[in-house]
Design a binder for these strands. Structure first.
Lengths: 205, 205
DNA sequence: TTCTGTGAACCGCTTCACAGCG
DNA sequence: CGCTGTGAAGCGGTTCACAGAA
């Protein structure tokens, strides 16, 4: 089972299942079925079973899946059964909002450094973080061994920041800038694109 | 050509093409090819040609696509060759950041109303908008004939807000809350899910 | 020649359907 | 009987390859 290549689209559904499972857990459920999990995740039951079977046999025939057990398995597969230290680059309005948002830390993504290049911001505090100058970014990230970063700088600066992050040893970038980033093949980038999502929806109006 | 059902995945790539075309335009180009447009959009040339051919014959054999013309065609297909009035619900940190972000207006999505239910916020100004109480939301949106809304309220409140928005005649919702919304079939919802995107990437680290 | 538009081949994800176990 | 796990079938999107226009 391990070593087999899993379709990326399957991996991308695991966080969705996890989210639904957490909702079930909050509702006091202890067990679910592929049918129920699928319905609440907008995915067919067969798809759910096939997806999960890529990674193991997590269910019990006749009774379904144990919610806590399956959640733990998915967290383990996604490597989010541990915490991840994250760097945040760019403290405009959006960076500010993200730095103060507790949702990332609740899922194990701890923002440990916040960088900006604006001299009037450097040294000031945002929550419990002191804003650090980008000059020391590469070295700081390298020394801390951080591999995940969020980019919330203006589009025109995003590529330069990405280049620095790659140099600093970052392996995964969540990009909030309205720009597509050029990075080496072994670096993962996901872009948050609310504008593209809006434009997409307009087609159907 | 019109009336034919276009795969949603094709529609979802149009905004990507448009974004790339705009970059080309800014770089002073006037013409491009499926090869060039594809490379900069991380999509194969054949895919680009096939996608565009769903909607018409926009290129010239031998020379490629006129950038301005193709941009206009895509904007027209997506119905973003006009402006859209948008309502924003929820003025926490994120809503605040979005209300002040000029990127939406630059692409024709004008935020015309901002709602919140916090009495200490209602009546205060954010940019040029006065924050309005949610009590008058349904009526205000209905009267203005607005069909697009952004939800930036806490997860627990998102479904209730969505229900109201549907009642108000909203047809497309961009949901920033960490929650999946239940809405009638004819309403489009897209969710911005940075946390799911991060979790997805962790698999590959 | 260059590059588009497109039928056909291909490939991979989704769905089906059922064996098998509790 | 209920529900999983899974080979096989089905389907839809992607890629190929080439006719044809500039």
């Amino acid at each position: 089972m391990t070593g087999k290549i899993i379709p990326d689209i399957v991996v991308s559904r695991l966080p969705v299942y996890l989210q639904t499972l957490q909702r079930f857990a909050k509702e006091g459920e202890t067990t679910t079925s592929s049918k129920e999990l699928g319905e609440r995740s907008c995915i067919t039951a067969a798809q759910v079973r096939k997806d999960l079977s890529f990674f193991g046999e997590f269910g019990k025939q006749g009774s379904g899946y144990n919610i806590v057990f399956l959640s733990d398995q998915i967290r383990s597969i996604l490597k989010i059964n541990r915490g991840w230290d994250v760097a945040l680059v760019g403290v405009g309005d959006l960076g500010h909002a993200i730095a103060r948002y507790p949702g990332f830390a609740e899922r194990g993504f701890r923002i440990v450094f916040v960088f900006d290049n604006d001299p009037t911001k450097i040294g000031t505090k945002i929550g419990k973080h002191t804003i650090l100058p980008t000059e020391i970014m590469v070295e700081t990230i390298k020394n801390a061994g951080i591999t995940v970063a969020l980019i919330t700088v203006p589009s025109r600066a995003a590529q330069a920041v990405a280049d620095q992050l790659v140099q600093a040893g970052i392996k995964a970038i969540l990009n909030y800038a309205q720009a597509s980033l050029n990075v080496p093949d072994h670096i993962r980038v996901e872009t948050v694109s609310p504008i593209l999502q809006l434009q997409h929806m307009m087609y159907y109006l």
